[in-house]
Design a binder for these strands. Structure first.
Length: 880
DNA sequence: ACCGCCGGGTGCC
DNA sequence: ACCGCCGGGTGCC
């Protein structure tokens, strides 16, 4: 019989050996069946349950219903008892306190993080002065003993056994008889975001002001979005019962109608036109389902402005105005003719206008938004779009609220939020807030997240092709942003959805699916509308071209490999692979570089001569990671590294990002990647690359490599077959891209380049040049694998040359999709160069395994496990 | 009576 | 709280 928790013997205090299942047996079986502790320590296993009492009800206003969930909050500064534990309902209103005798052990357990304690009130309402509460103790297995003994010592050994109603409750609501396997769960997740087409086929025409005709699936999205914004329904899982609005998951009830959720997630695949659809929404659903009222501009005036913008010399450095204009992108603002009055909301001094839409996006897609507004909004419509970016940005919130659209980046939003008093974005009540590439907001502790969650608006949208980036956890921030009560409070999300779902509870999974379904629209490139594909895209074909190293290269490779084997072999015998993980990765980077071009190796890349000083070792590691031009991203902000620092555990982040983590978690701060303890003193800076790198390569005699030769052969062939065909040449190593410039010039190719180090101005220029179809335009783009966001549109190219494999197959797919997207007219042919008998072949194989493995263990692999399996991979690769 | 008993005041932490 | 607990009033039958 498969049973996770027995219903009998669940009580912590049960001492009767004749019971069929004792607590320890029950919990043991639960761990055997793989109830894995959550990384955040938010879940773990159920130690048991007991009944306690809540007192002091009459002093507080918070009320609870039968079977309602309550939260238990420590009050260490309570003047009467430093052990005080407060009981609050789902909206955070205090209900009472835990009786002091019980509060004592609970305070100990909670303060020492031995268990998470959750409460459910079995019979609410009729209680006037005190009531009982069922307490559930969840924690890591290793803390079980400490929890039980503490409770026993405080005299809770012989407390009353739970009544039948508790047992019933456990068996019904909290225990899945047979938990889902990881594979079943993964399938359900896939399905969750796949099957969202049903009943979403009604179409809406865009307002006249939208110039570009919408495709059928875009009209459907527009209809759906407008309907979401105009809906008057109760949010998911809320029902009206008598004079109360009750949340059926938490059993929480309120008199006041819960806030409407006027928005959701537009999760269409990239290339389906999320940007255009959003623009159409802005233009077509202003108020009462009517279009945005615009002044007709003087045609001459606007056209001259438009021209000026196009010609404006773009004069700025990274970090300042990307367009040299901090004025209205399209036209002048409406003066004082707003049709809605400005309302002051008192203390909060937030100013409400119902006019402006705020759009927040990654820097990489900023220009895409501007372009699309210009492209899709009918010429002569007086739409005011203000680009809130650059040092000269206008910080007057009254001015901002009068715009039709304010466009900014996550970084600007977050920087403003840092000095909160002066953040104009947080003083406006927006008509609508749109998070583009919304999945980039997912770290609950990041300042960026707080800045996003603290925006004020009724209509809230998330645009993202991949709402779940890694695990279910990523969804919390999105739910919080959408103000889906009660899931905007993490405890309720964890308790009601995240934990039960990750532990395989079917009921909760169904709830999650229903929740997502209600607020998400998703179409993939293969989705059908009335039997016809939403998007007809040309074919995509992938070839692997195996490259044989020259004898000289082979010797160099083998030498490096033998050397690496020695070093890694030693770590393996010592069992210190984990502590030297960064060294190991460095060795692999070195081998991968030799496969591309021996010249990629700097003299500093000598890992084996490890300096004794930790500081120096870390510096050499960070330099190795960054100086080869590998376009690393910060795991916190997911953008390119700014002011890179390395932790003692050898992980690299932006200094501001990691400092924010340390600031918010104080001495409990842990490395976001490996959970090692970190503090501000133990951050080592990257001193910058002392060598002037690329300038030397020009002087030295040019030397080719087998892979370069293979590429040049292909490029010449492509050019010979059809000179109009353009190619992307992709590498993770920007220095490799630099090396490739020489042979490209030699062969007379015109090319352009796009990598993470370029400022916005030169990016825009590079993209525009490449996308241009005139005969003199560049036919090749040197592209760093992770440059730009998903919005990057390089449809001028139909050939892709992947120069080196990545650990992350998704990054490769995403890169290819920059040209294999709406607007592509040719079949896309991808050529991957892989060096025979090398680490590159191993990486290819591992990529395949990884895809399979991902399918089997969705979201259940810890960082530690992932590292462990990476070690196994490394051992195989190094033939150890 | 350094007790018992009565009945009013009172009540979380 | 239709309880417990506290502390003042009170004191044979």
């Amino acid at each position: 019989m498969r049973r996770r928790f027995g219903t009998a013997g669940l009580d912590l205090l049960d001492t009767d050996p004749s019971e069929s299942v004792t607590l320890s047996q029950a919990v043991q079986s639960s761990t055997e069946e793989g109830a894995r502790p959550d990384l955040d320590g938010e879940a773990g296993v159920l130690f048991g349950a007991m009944t306690g009492s809540v007192v002091g009800l009459r002093y507080y206003t918070g009320v609870v219903n039968k079977r309602e969930m309550v939260s238990l909050v420590r009050e260490p500064h309570n003047p009467y008892d430093r052990n005080a534990v407060m009981v609050a309902n789902v909206y955070g209103n205090q209900v009472g306190h835990i009786k002091k005798e019980l509060a004592a052990p609970m305070a100990y357990i909670m303060d020492n993080n031995l268990a998470k304690i959750e409460g459910v009130v079995p019979y609410g309402k009729t209680n006037k002065f005190s009531m009982s509460v069922t307490l559930f103790f969840w924690g890591e297995e290793e803390n079980r003993a400490a929890v039980t003994t503490k409770l026993n010592h405080c005299g809770f050994k012989s407390a009353k056994a739970p009544g039948s109603s508790l047992q019933e409750m456990l068996s019904k609501n909290l225990v899945a008889a047979v938990p889902l396997t990881a594979e079943q769960m993964k399938n359900s997740f896939d399905k969750m975001f796949d099957d969202l087409m049903a009943d979403k086929t009604r179409e809406m025409e865009a307002a006249d002001a939208v110039f570009t005709p919408l495709l059928p699936h875009q009209k459907q999205a527009l209809y759906w979005m407008a309907a979401r914004e105009n809906n008057d329904h109760l949010p998911p899982f809320w029902e009206q019962k008598g004079d109360l609005y009750v949340n059926v998951l938490t059993n929480f009830g309120v008199k006041q109608r819960p806030e409407r959720v006027l928005g959701g997630i537009l999760a269409d695949d990239m290339g389906l036109g999320k940007t255009l659809t959003t623009i159409a929404l802005i233009m077509s659903n202003f108020h009462d389902g009517r279009p945005l009222l615009l002044d007709k501009a003087d045609q001459k005036a606007s056209s001259s402005l438009l021209k000026r913008r196009r010609k404006d010399p773009i004069k700025t450095e990274k970090g300042s105005e990307p367009y040299g204009l901090n004025r209205h992108l399209v036209f002048t603002p409406l003066s004082d003719m707003d049709i809605f009055t400005t309302v002051f909301l008192g203390a909060d001094s937030r100013i409400s206008t119902a006019r402006a839409t705020l759009i927040i996006c990654p820097l990489s897609v900023l220009s895409n938004w501007l372009d699309q507004f210009e492209q899709h909004v009918r010429f002569g419509e007086n739409l005011s779009v203000y680009l809130y970016y650059g040092t000269e940005r206008c910080r007057d919130h009254n001015f901002l609220s009068r715009q039709d659209v304010v466009l900014t980046t996550y970084n600007v939003l977050s920087a403003d939020y840092g000095n909160k008093e002066s953040s104009p974005l947080h003083k406006v009540s927006w008509l609508r807030v749109v998070l583009d590439e919304g999945h980039v907001v997912r770290n609950p502790n990041a300042q960026q997240t707080k800045a996003v969650l603290d925006l004020s608006s009724e209509r809230r949208w998330i645009l993202s092709g991949t709402p779940i980036q890694n695990s279910l956890k990523d969804l919390w921030v999105l739910m919080a942003f959408l103000k889906l009560k009660p899931f905007d409070v993490k405890e309720w999300w964890n308790r009601v959805i995240q934990r039960p779902v990750t532990q395989g509870d079917r009921e909760s999974l169904k709830n999650l699916q229903a929740l997502i379904k209600g607020i998400t629209l998703r179409r993939t490139k293969t989705s059908k509308v009335a039997g016809k594909s939403v998007v007809e895209l040309p074919q995509k074909k992938m070839f692997v071209q195996r490259v044989t190293l020259s004898e000289e290269e082979r010797q160099e490779y083998d030498l490096a490999k033998t050397e690496g084997q020695k070093v890694i072999g030693r770590y393996v015998t010592e069992g210190t692979v984990l502590t030297n993980y960064a060294d190991v990765l460095a060795i692999l980077v070195r081998l991968r570089q030799i496969c591309c071009h021996p010249g990629l190796l700097g003299s500093y890349a000598r890992v084996s001569s490890a300096p004794s000083d930790l500081q120096e070792r870390l510096i050499s590691k960070i330099r190795l990671v960054l100086s080869c031009g590998s376009d690393e991203e910060c795991a916190i902000c997911l953008d390119s590294l700014r002011q890179p620092v390395i932790t003692y555990c050898a992980h690299v982040f932006c200094r501001p990002c990691i400092c924010e983590v340390i600031r918010s978690e104080q001495e409990r701060a842990k490395c976001p990647l490996c959970r090692a303890h970190i503090n501000t003193k133990e951050l080592v800076e990257y001193p910058g690359d002392k060598e002037t790198g690329t300038s030397t390569s020009g002087k030295e005699k040019w030397r080719s490599s087998s892979k370069v030769d293979a590429l040049m052969g292909r490029l010449l062939q492509v050019h010979g077959e059809d000179p109009a065909v353009k190619s992307l040449v992709v590498s993770q190593f920007t220095r490799f891209l630099t090396l490739l410039e020489t042979p490209l010039r030699q062969h007379g190719f015109t090319f352009t380049r796009l990598d993470g180090s370029m400022n916005q101005r030169s990016r825009v220029k590079a993209i525009a040049e490449f996308q241009d179809s005139s005969p003199s335009s560049p036919s090749i783009m040197l592209l760093s694998l992770t440059a730009g966001g998903v919005g990057l549109n390089l449809t001028a190219a139909s050939r892709v040359f992947m120069m080196d494999p990545s650990w992350n197959p998704a990054a490769e797919d995403q890169c290819v999709d920059r040209c294999h997207r709406l607007g592509q007219t040719r079949d896309v042919i991808i050529t991957k160069f892989i060096v025979k008998n090398s680490v590159e072949e191993d990486m290819m194989r591992i990529q395949l395994n990884k895809k399979e493995l991902m399918e089997k263990t969705f979201g259940s692999k810890s960082v530690q496990d992932q590292r462990q399996s990476r070690i196994e991979e490394i051992k195989t690769m190094m033939a150890l």
